[in-house]
Amino acid sequence: MSGAPPHVGLFVTCLVDLFRPSVGFATVRLLERAGCRVSVPAEQTCCGQPAFSQGAREEARALARQVIETFSGFDYVVLPSGSCAATLRRHYPELLADDPAWANRARALSERTHELTSFLADVIQFTEINTVYDGKVAYHDSCSGLRELGIREQPRRLLGLIDGLHETPLANPEGCCGFGGAFCVKYPGISDRLATDKSRQVVESGADLLLGGDLGCLLNLAGTLRRQGATTEVRHVAEVLADQTEAPPIGRE
């Protein structure tokens, strides 16, 4: 990387914006520490994944165009979410493939877009994590990040740089937590079984902290663990990497 620091457009995602602002601030801190110049475009809302997943293609396209417009002109676009990053990277190009005015722009954005931990680990090759965390941590691999973007090692590589942090593996790390966006409210019976099963794995792992890279799954698991009376804390991985754990864990006060 030569000369000027890379200019990163931060797309915090709608869930972080609403539920967990501290993940947004932690992300900014990490990106700045990694030598990036960070901008947060004010026009951002949501990547449109709820519409895309529901099959509301027109609504999804409108949002895709808005995001492409909002995030043009950055060297990179970074999101603290695997599933939202996958929406930009994998699905915008297919969504706008038949739209001559937008297809190229969608592809260009796709190539510049990265999920936070893979951006830090693979693109910037960031290694300066100087924090200490004394405890046992479980990591939830969210399905979209894992299978659409191949994110598995990246967050672990970064967490491995933290002194004292010890990962306790889950019994079925590839299994879905049952969130699935609207799925969790439309088919709550199935979602509950999956969330319960995953929560049990978390508790059985003996971890005192559950981390992950997607707030949707984390809200689901934090809510389930809390309802079941488990004391395991839940946070977004960015909070720990940035050493910003002043806010209470997700779903706690």
């Binding site: 539920f19 967990r20 602002p21 409210v185 969330a195 934090a222 809390r226 779903g251």
Partner: peptide, 13 residues
Amino acid sequence: GGWTATRDLPVPE
């Protein structure tokens, strides 16, 4: 209710 029947809903910070 689909969410809260079986899990709590964490609220914004």
